[in-house]
Amino acid sequence: MQGNGRAEEAATELSGREKAYRYVKEQVLTSPAAQGWFLSEQELATRIGLSRTPVREALLMLQAQGLVEMVPKRGIHIPAMSGRQIAELMELRGVLERHAASRALADGTVPVAAMRSALAEQEAIATDPGAEAARTFIELDGRFHQFLIDSAGSELVSDTYAGLRARQLRIGLTALLSSSDRVRAVCTEHQAIIDALEVGDEGLVHEKINDHLEITLQILLRT
């Protein structure tokens, strides 16, 4: 019976750690305004409704991923992404997306319908100037690209790309809020990628992916 109690306790702690991990990664780290912030474990624990232990465990996981820095006597620092880090992120995205597109075209698994559906949802909120709409738009943006990534049929590629989500949401929102016409431009660029996939021209698909990522990168580097 005592062993079962320890197992239940471990499961509860794991659940708490996962809850804290997801909260910080999806609600805190995705905000452009969070860059440069210092947070305390107790503040996060109170906000999430947990004890400090699972929160600390979650923060250690995030620190191992380079998403936060635990600074003695100051708290948890959310570092801003440098221009070099942003460029490297966009470069990695390009490598993964071009690879996925090539595989999907070769295997006949191009997810045009799913990507078109995500784009339609983006277009439906493109004229909404609210902050919540902007976040939803960027989440749909992530879904659009993840559909393409997943079509390659590689669990490792899909997991690697999904692991970039927090950083991508943050810089995506930054780019969106930095340019008044970026929302419509993203929709146009997404449509160009879909059109190239439908034609089945691998070189053209790569070109449209590169154009989309390069435009975003240049906006971010000017911010």
Results as ranks from 00 to 15, higher is better:
residue 171 I to Y: 12
residue 172 G to D: 00
residue 172 G to R: 08
residue 173 L to K: 03
residue 173 L to A: 02
residue 174 T to N: 00
residue 174 T to Y: 00
residue 174 T to W: 02
residue 174 T to I: 04
residue 175 A to L: 05
residue 176 L to N: 02
residue 177 L to Y: 11
residue 178 S to C: 07
residue 179 S to Y: 09
residue 179 S to C: 10
residue 180 S to Y: 06
residue 181 D to G: 01
residue 182 R to N: 12
residue 183 V to H: 15
residue 183 V to W: 15
residue 184 R to E: 08
residue 184 R to S: 13
residue 184 R to D: 04
residue 184 R to W: 14
residue 185 A to S: 11
residue 186 V to P: 03
residue 186 V to H: 08
residue 187 C to Y: 12
residue 188 T to W: 10
residue 190 H to F: 07
residue 190 H to V: 00
residue 190 H to D: 04
residue 193 I to C: 01
residue 195 D to E: 13
residue 195 D to F: 11
residue 196 A to Y: 07
residue 197 L to D: 00
residue 198 E to T: 01
residue 198 E to W: 09
residue 198 E to K: 14
residue 198 E to H: 08
residue 199 V to Q: 12
residue 199 V to R: 13
residue 199 V to W: 05
residue 199 V to M: 10
residue 200 G to K: 12
residue 201 D to R: 15
residue 201 D to G: 10
residue 202 E to K: 15
residue 202 E to C: 06
residue 203 G to A: 09
residue 203 G to S: 08
residue 203 G to K: 10
residue 203 G to Y: 08
residue 203 G to R: 09
residue 205 V to L: 03
residue 206 H to Q: 14
residue 206 H to Y: 08
residue 206 H to S: 12
residue 207 E to D: 09
residue 207 E to N: 13
residue 208 K to H: 11
residue 208 K to G: 04
residue 208 K to C: 09
residue 208 K to D: 01
residue 208 K to M: 15
residue 208 K to I: 02
residue 209 I to M: 03
residue 209 I to C: 07
residue 210 N to E: 09
residue 211 D to P: 00
residue 211 D to W: 06
